[in-house]
Every structure is written in C-alpha cells, then in structure tokens.
C-alpha cells in the first residue's frame, strides 16, 4: 500500500513541495513563519476553488478555459445588481445569486457540448470571450470598490489568529474552510458516486462508457454545473478578499490554473487526476511564487523561473514515457 502511494505523481509533487520549502526556509527563515503559511494559503484560496471546479471536466477528457470568465461575470454582475438595489447585508446573498448564475452559465456550456456534439474546448473559448465581453459592455468596464456594509469586514474574518514575530498579528481567512469543504465534496463525488466514476470512465474510454450504460450527456452536464457554481464562488470570494469587484478578474489566468491541475498529476487527455494532486499543484505554484520573493530572486525574474520549472516538470514525464515505449516493444503491438 505504502509502496503504491510513494509511486504516485501526487507524492512526488508533495516531496518537491517539502523539499522546496526546506530549501527556501534555510535561505530565509522567515519562510517558516506562521504569517507566510497564512498568506500563502490566503493567496491560494480562489485558485483551489477554481481548480477543484474545473478538475472534473479535465478528468472527463475536456479542456475548459471559460471558468475564469464565469467567475468574472457572475461576481461582477451580482455585485452591480445588489449595488443598484441598495443592498447592505452580508455575503450570503452574494454567494446565492452568483452561484445560481454560475450554474446557468455552466449548464449553457454543457448544453452546447452535449446537444450539438461540440468539442469542450471550442465551446469554452466562445464562452470565454462572450462572458468577458458581456461583463465589460453590459455590466460595467471599471472596477467597483463600493462594498455593502455587511460585507466590508469579511476580508479580515479569520478562523485562527496568531502573533507573528515579523509582522505582528496575522490570521487564517475563514474561507479556507470553504476550500476544505469543497475539496472534500469533489473528492467524495469523484470517488464515491456513480457519476464520479462515470467521469473517470468517460476520460478513460468515452465509447466504452457509453456502451457500458453511463449516462454520458448527463454526466457532462454535471461537470459543467460544478464548474459554473465553483467559478462563481471563486469570483465572489476573490472580490471580498481584495475588497473590490473587477469585471476582468482572472482574465489572464485560465492556463495558470490548468497548469496547476496538470502539475498535480491530471492528464490533459483525461482519465487521470485527483483532488489531492490538484491541491498540491495549486500550493506548489503559490509556494514557488512566495519562495521567489523570499529567496531574494528579483521580482522581475520570477516568472522566468516558474517557466523553467514548468518545462522541467513537463519534460521529465515525456522522457520517461518515451523510454518506456522503447522498452515495451516486446509486448508486440503488431
């Protein structure tokens, strides 16, 4: 059992995460401070949520980039709507309205994919440009900083606070609880429901999944519904954490999120991927970002370092596979 865990991609990512943390910690002890931990997690929150949301689609064999646009359109239009209505209450109504919109937007993608037999990626590309355009044109083109009274304090609502020798009082934001709950839900859904197994089955062999009796169109719709709702959650959460609503939020980042999922062991062609791997992938990218700051690498070179890390990460499995194919010739594919 232990042997099998050690061989997984998740474990390798975990090891790299630990190794990286130790190295950075040795260079700059500030890395091991509680505030670094809290800040890293806080920065990762929305990426966790978005990655969890799009993971089922990736496992089922599709590639989606529209989730960022759905995050933007749902959060921003919810906000502008409630602002117009003079809403002064708390965050719950924001989440409810945005999630409903997200559900509908996700289902629209899903409907187009299943009804017209379209590639997931093509539909998501259309949805991506459509929703950002919709947001900017119909809802508003500038960021909005007027938060309802009931939501203003939310950005600093912590579940634990601690005293940090470097920065003073620091805390872990309460929305990390949502992240854990969402992660648990997706994990449970993927592992313990027939739909979840159908998602893996589709990614493994779509034809056989249909032949075996999985309701493939329905499963597709479910994956898109999840993506839509969680994108909305991510959009609203990001707005509250940063205390403003931005119509083009995440616009440059869909590929970054996909990169994190793939770092965590998901296959771009479907059939493989896990919640824990995805979480580790997101965390790894955040730790790299933070490590670059703390190790004194000038800010301007950080992206370059991330690029090199990505190249190494994608090349190693490719080389391994190439070697495996060379050795595996005797199984005779004739």
């Amino acid at each position: 059992m232990l042997n099998r865990i050690v061989k997984t991609r998740e474990f390798i990512v975990f090891l790299i995460l630990v190794a990286l943390s130790v190295i950075v910690g040795l260079i700059n002890p500030a890395f091991f401070s509680i505030s670094t931990v809290f800040d890293t997690l806080r920065a990762a929150i929305v990426y966790f949520i978005m990655a969890f949301g799009v993971l089922p689609i990736i496992i089922s064999g599709g590639i989606d980039i529209s989730f960022v646009a759905i995050a933007a359109v749902t959060s921003f239009s919810t906000h502008m709507l409630l602002l117009k209505l003079g809403y002064e209450g708390g965050t719950l109504l924001y989440y409810l309205i945005a999630c409903t919109m997200g559900l509908l937007a996700g289902l629209l993608n899903g409907f187009l994919v299943t009804r017209f037999n379209l590639p997931v990626f093509n539909v998501s590309l259309a949805a991506f440009t459509m929703w950002y355009g919709f947001n900017l044109f119909f809802i508003g083109a500038t960021a909005n900083f007027d938060l309802p009274a009931g939501t203003v304090g939310y950005y600093a609502r912590f579940i634990i606070t601690a005293r940090d020798p470097f920065v003073g009082k620091t805390g872990l934001h309460v929305s990390i609880v949502y992240v854990v709950l969402i992660g648990l839900f997706i994990w449970w859904m993927l592992k313990y429901t027939t739909i979840g197994r159908g998602i893996y089955a589709m990614g493994g062999n779509r034809e056989v999944a249909i032949r075996s009796g999985f309701n493939v169109p329905f499963i597709t719709l479910v994956t898109f519904a999840i993506m839509g709702v969680l994108s909305a959650v991510a959009g609203v959460t990001q707005a509250f954490l940063s205390r403003y609503f931005n119509p083009v939020i995440f616009i440059g980042q869909p590929l970054d999120v996909l990169a994190a999922i793939i770092l965590g062991g998901a296959s771009i062609t479907g059939g493989r991927g896990s919640v824990i791997g995805t979480a580790l992938g997101v965390l790894l990218i955040q730790v790299i970002n933070r490590a670059l700051i703390l190790t004194g690498i000038p800010v301007q070179w950080q992206r370059l370092v991330v690029g090199i890390i990505l190249i190494v990460f994608t090349s190693i499995p490719a080389l391994q596979e190439r070697r495996a194919r060379r050795i595996g010739h005797t199984t005779e594919a004739a």
Partner: peptide, 19 residues
C-alpha cells in the same frame, strides 16, 4: 471494452454497479 485508467476491481464490478 475496458477502461484503461481504472483498476482491475472497478472494471470487473462496473456493470454490476451500473445495473
């Protein structure tokens, strides 16, 4: 007609699960 990415156990039992 198997799922290459799933385990032996699951491949064997999947029809029963669906049925």
């Amino acid at each position: 007609s198997l799922f290459p990415n799933l385990t032996v156990a699951e491949n064997i039992a999947i029809n029963e699960q669906l049925a």
